[in-house]
Structures are given as structure tokens and as C-alpha cells.
């Protein structure tokens, strides 16, 4: 038996019929073709599936689709696009913070969740917040640099704490 839900995804209200045992990650990827969030482990250990739920970073593999009913979900696709990148996306580009790119959407969304909560994080804050987002390629240095740069850029633009 499916359940009717209404979720605001990247600003668009979506009315969907979901299975009770369907994950938010599955719903985003299979029903809405938002494949930016990745399945890396399906047990909340890798962070590749992180999206924002009401502005907070969550592992979408551990959230049921029905649990998102009436709430707002932001995925990497809702963040920015060519010509209008979010400062975090811009900073990831400029700091060579991307290699294979598989972890990048989750990494960026976790960083965004952090900046929503703490617009001026220290390096230790960033390392701690990103510690549940695994990256096998970069060694993290350039990712941390990028998040710091984005925080500075958002602060300078007076956008810190802005919730997309």
C-alpha cells in the first residue's frame, strides 16, 4: 500500500505516492531523477547521500520517504547551476576539491548544513562536521580549504545562514 505525501523538493512542491519502506534517497533518485545524492553504503556511514531536510544535513538513506512528508528537501540540484553556482560549489571548483566527484554532492550538502548552523566555522569545526562524509580521492585538504573559502565568501556577501 502506498502513502500519499507532499514534499517540497528544491522549492517545488511534489505530490507523490511512495512505498512505506522507500528511503528518501530512493525517492529522490528513482522517482524524481535527482541523482546528485548517491548511494555509497546505505547505512549512514559514507555521507554520499546527504541532503538538507528543513535546512539540516541528513543521510537520506536513513530517512524514509514518508518521513519527509510536509517538509522541505534541498539536494545538490537545488543549490546552483552553471552561471549561478552557490559559493560552496564555486569554492570546490576553485580549490581542486573535487576528484571523482562521487562524494562531492554529499560533501557540499553537509558543508551547507554546517554553514547554516555555524557561518564562521573553525578548521576543527569543518573537519568534525565532514568526518561522516568519506572521500577516497582527495585526502580532504582541498575540501576543507574550499569550505573555509566558501564560509568567507558567504560572510562577505552577508549571506551566511541563508537557507536555500
Amino acid at each position: 500500500m502506498t502513502i500519499a505525501i507532499q514534499v517540497t523538493v528544491n522549492g517545488q512542491l511534489e505530490a507523490l505516492e511512495v512505498e512505506p519502506h522507500e528511503s528518501l534517497l530512493g525517492m529522490l533518485r528513482e522517482r524524481l531523477d535527482l541523482t546528485g545524492a548517491k548511494e555509497g553504503c546505505n547505512e549512514g556511514e559514507c555521507g554520499a547521500c546527504v541532503v538538507l531536510l528543513d535546512g539540516r544535513a541528513v543521510n537520506s538513506c536513513l530517512v524514509l520517504a514518508v518521513e519527509a512528508n510536509g517538509r522541505a528537501v534541498t539536494t545538490i540540484e537545488g543549490l546552483g547551476h552553471a552561471g549561478a553556482l552557490h559559493p560552496l560549489q564555486q569554492a570546490f571548483l576553485e580549490h581542486s576539491a573535487v576528484q571523482c566527484g562521487f562524494c562531492s554532492p554529499g560533501m557540499i550538502m553537509t558543508a551547507l548544513g554546517l554553514l547554516n548552523e555555524n557561518p564562521t566555522p573553525s578548521e576543527a569545526d569543518i573537519r568534525q562536521a565532514l568526518s561522516g562524509n568519506l572521500c577516497r580521492c582527495t585526502g580532504y585538504r582541498q575540501i576543507i580549504d574550499a569550505v573555509q573559502a566558501a564560509a568567507a565568501a558567504l560572510g562577505a556577501a552577508g549571506q551566511a545562514g541563508r537557507r536555500p
Binding site: 533518485r29 541523482t35 546528485g36 570546490f92 571548483l93 566527484g101 562531492s104
Partner: peptide
Amino acid sequence: VPRVDGLEKVTGAARYTADVK
């Protein structure tokens, strides 16, 4: 030089095998 495939990777546009319908 910035990575030429960076834009698709930071926007979520990049498609990996399991992303292909």
C-alpha cells in the same frame, strides 16, 4: 587550470553508471 569536468561534478549533473536510467 580548474578541472574541466568540475562544473558537472559540483552541480550533481555528472551521471555515474547507477544514475543512468
